[in-house]
Every structure is written in structure tokens, then in C-alpha cells.
Design a protein around this nucleic acid. Structure first.
Lengths: 128, 128
DNA sequence: CTGTATCCCTTGGGATACTG
DNA sequence: CAGTATCCCAAGGGATACAG
């Protein structure tokens, strides 16, 4: 019988949306780089910009604001002239590094397999 | 003295690009959901579409192709009529679940802190 | 059933210029 | 120094129609 079943998409539960938000952060091109860099210690705005390299001022600002909003990074303004702003990982931000590093380790470990799969797939696509 | 220093952006090393690619996969809205669903067993195209819900045909196809290209999923076509195609996680795909689950666990565990940080941040932005 | 092809709107994000 | 504001282009992704 075809009664009305539960069709609530799995990804729309409260828990799943929370997980998605974090996955989005991690998937973001710049967030992880910033967190990684900040893991080595406090950093100023332009310092971050230089060390990461390739990030625009706009994206650095936006990404830092996002990280700050999620409580992963603190922003400290020193009322000097010229202004000095320091960014630092919070305990929460530090704790995120562990699972992220695990993922990075997985990526490095299996990179050869992935590259091989890519070549195989592309080669097969070629001859189609 | 200001000699020409090493300004190679950290994210442009070979290793880092490999890690980024994986982080991109994980950050992708649909990839993780598909992998998660496939973790419970083989699945057909429309089966996946229904269970995930909210994904367009186009994105399901594109995402599955990407997962297949990276060797995370296998695609098996049964030459019947109507056609029957089954998707299944590879061993590599299975192995990815571990670090991803760790990240999901982190997200769930710290969700309250993140939500609180969000509220605090938004509240402060309000009064500015 | 399992896709592919198009159209088209939304979002992401770089470049540049300006401000406290 | 540390941003904000604007412009603008490219990629992401849904809706729809068509095909094997």
C-alpha cells in the first residue's frame, strides 16, 4: 500500500543543518587556511593577508567575520594609531583543528588513489 | 634588509591543493549526503533522489559523476529495459566516512556553543 | 528509468577606489 | 593599518524539456 510516508528530506533536520553549516565552513576555501595559520599564534590583518597569499582584502574580511560570528576566532582592536587588530583562535577554534587535521591526513594519505581514479575516469571518458 | 623572501602562498603547494580538493568535496552540500546515504548500502538513481530530497536531477548526476571520478563511488549499469543503475561506495568512499563522521560529531557536540556565539555576535551587531 | 541539454537567476568573489 | 563600498564577471545550481 502506498500511504503517505515520511518524506522529510534527511538534510532538513535541525542536526543535519548544523552539521552542514560546519561542513560549509570547512569546505570554504579560505576558512581552513586562516584557522590553520592562526593555529600557530595570533596574527594581524595584513599579516594574515600576506601569509595566506592570493586572498583579496574583501574575502579576508568576510571570512574573518564569519569565523568570529561562529566563535572560532576573536578580534581584538588596539586603539592606537595606526590601528592594530589581532586575530586569535578561540578554544572552540582550536578544537576544530583536530577533526579538520584528521580529514587533511586522510586527503594526503589517499591522494594517490584519488589521482589514479581521476586519470582512469578521464581516460575512459576520452574513448567515448 | 628586505631581500626577496619566500612568498609562495601556503595553499599553492601540491599537498595543500590535494587537501583543498577533498575539503571542497566535503564542503559540497550534496556529496556528503550521498556518501552518507550510500553508506547504508547500494542505491539506484531515483532512490537516491527521493531519499535525499530537494536535490535536482542535474545536481544528483553531477555530484555522482564527481564522486565516481574520485573513486569514491562505483556506477553499475544493468543493460535491462528500463535501465537500472546502481551506485555503491568503494572502499575508499567508505574510508572517507570516518573522518567525515568525526567532523559531524564535532559539529553536533559544539553546536550549542556556535549557536550561542552567533546570537551574541548578532546582538552586538544590532546595537552598533 | 536514467540521464543530457538549455535557459536563467542567484551567489561568490576579484579589482579597485575610498575612509577612519 | 584595517577595513568598507561598488562594480562586475564567472561559477553554482534550479526548472524545464528532451532523449535513449
Amino acid at each position: 500500500m502506498t500511504v503517505t510516508e515520511d518524506v522529510t528530506p534527511l538534510h532538513e533536520t535541525s542536526d543535519c543543518r548544523a552539521v552542514s553549516a560546519v561542513l560549509g565552513r570547512v569546505g570554504d576555501k579560505w576558512s581552513v587556511l586562516i584557522i590553520s595559520r592562526l593555529g600557530d599564534g595570533t596574527c594581524r590583518f595584513n599579516e594574515l593577508k600576506r601569509m595566506i597569499g592570493g586572498i583579496s582584502q574583501r574575502m579576508l574580511t568576510l571570512t574573518l567575520r564569519g569565523l568570529e560570528r561562529d566563535g572560532l576566532v576573536t578580534r581584538t582592536v588596539f586603539p592606537t594609531v595606526p590601528p592594530r587588530v589581532e586575530y586569535e583562535l578561540t578554544a572552540l577554534g582550536q578544537s576544530l583543528r583536530e577533526p579538520v587535521d584528521a580529514l587533511a591526513a586522510w586527503a594526503l594519505e589517499h591522494q594517490p588513489e584519488i589521482a589514479a581514479a581521476n586519470r582512469l575516469y578521464d581516460q575512459r571518458s576520452q574513448s567515448s
